[in-house]
């Protein structure tokens, strides 16, 4: 018998969104939706989190696939990252998203891991993952933000007891593409802008998104506005496979007559949510995407960054990524 088996849970396998939402609303805090399983199962194996009732979403066909809607596209939350990376429409119109999806984790994880799972994954701070009683876990200490805490991967902005960062590669791309999250519960559907979907510890330290218990992210809609824009995505991580970003950058830019007419740009892994760099957008709009503009953009991007003991390197890293996004897109 292998070690670190998961404890028993009861698995529910609904085949429709309605049934899944009914189950999740009935279970409340005791319910746990699962899709690709990479995030969830490691919590269960480590015995750091437990759910008595696991709702398996993988049998819900309506939550899979990529469709064209209203000049843009809608991607079901259960669509795998490999499907997104290889999809013709995504590749031809939203190359930014194809690149971001292709940079997640490893090929095996992308084959099974879903869009919803990547966007909704929990914080990757290893103190928290280890199961300690930190603020995010309901305790009253942060182990990362101490004189000797290992916080090389942690935040430059938005520290509020917790210093964990948004670990997703896809989330900044969704913010740059001005995507809309379709959130359903047993009582209805609401639409949330990608930019507002992620929340920091100041709003709720135990969650990473606006999702309440009983709610599901069923799909993500990407408008036509940014289709075929000039895109830039880059992820810097210790290893090219598996590792979460140290910093990543995603931008969509439209250049007309040699000047940037509009742009959306967001960075990941610098705060608890994807950081939309509105100051960069303001600085570069109306200028040529050249070296000078890029340098200004880089400086603007890092203004106000508050590093921890071991993550000062993220400041020049972010500055350089923003420069490249403007200059090399």
């Amino acid at each position: 018998m292998s070690k670190d088996m998961m404890p028993h849970f009861e698995l529910f396998q609904p085949d429709s969104e309605e049934t899944a939402l009914d189950l999740l609303s009935r279970f409340g805090d005791e319910g746990w939706p699962v899709a690709g399983g990479h995030d969830s199962l490691s919590w269960f194996k480590d015995r750091a989190k437990y759910a008595a009732n696991v709702v398996d979403l993988t049998g819900i066909a309506s939550m899979r696939g990529i469709r064209e809607v209203d000049g843009g596209i809608e991607i079901g939350a259960l669509t795998t990252l490999t499907e997104i990376e290889n999809n013709d429409i995504v590749q031809s119109r939203y190359g930014l998203l194809a690149q971001a999806a292709g940079h997640v984790a490893s090929p095996q994880i992308r084959n099974v891991g879903t869009l919803g799972g990547n966007l909704n994954q929990d914080a990757r701070c290893w103190y928290y993952r280890y199961g300690v009683d930190c603020y995010r876990a309901g305790g009253n200490t942060c182990y990362a933000d101490t004189p000797e805490g290992q916080n090389r991967e942690h935040c430059l902005w938005g520290a509020d007891r917790c210093v964990a960062v948004s670990p997703s590669d896809v989330a900044p791309a969704m913010v740059a593409l001005d995507a809309t999250m379709i959130v359903r519960s047993a009582s209805g559907t609401r639409e949330v802008a990608a930019e507002d979907y992620f929340i920091g510890p100041d709003i709720d330290i135990e969650r990473m998104t606006v999702l309440e218990p009983g709610e599901l992210l069923t799909a993500v809609r990407i408008p036509g506005d940014w289709a075929n824009a000039q895109f830039y995505f880059e992820k810097v991580a210790d290893r090219n496979t598996w590792d979460f970003p140290l910093v990543n950058i995603a931008s969509a830019m439209v250049v007309e007559n040699g000047t940037i007419s509009r742009i959306r740009i967001a960075a990941g892994a610098v705060q608890c949510t994807p950081r939309r760099l509105t100051v960069v957008e303001e600085v570069v709009t109306g200028s040529a995407p050249d070296e000078e503009t890029a340098a200004l953009a880089g400086q603007a991007a890092v203004r106000g960054a508050t590093p921890l003991n071991f993550n000062h390197f993220k400041i020049p890293l972010l500055e350089n990524l923003v420069k490249r996004a403007i200059r090399d897109a």
């Binding site: 698995l11 199962l41 984790a105 095996q108 994880i109």
Partner: peptide, 27 residues
């Protein structure tokens, strides 16, 4: 590793590589 971080458990599910340690048997 039993956590989807090493690849030793890779099998093919419908011809696609996946980590068998991070896949529920019912799937």
């Amino acid at each position: 590793c039993n956590r989807g971080e090493c690849g030793a458990c890779t099998v093919l599910i419908d011809d696609e590589p996946a980590y068998a340690c991070s896949t529920l048997a019912v799937w």
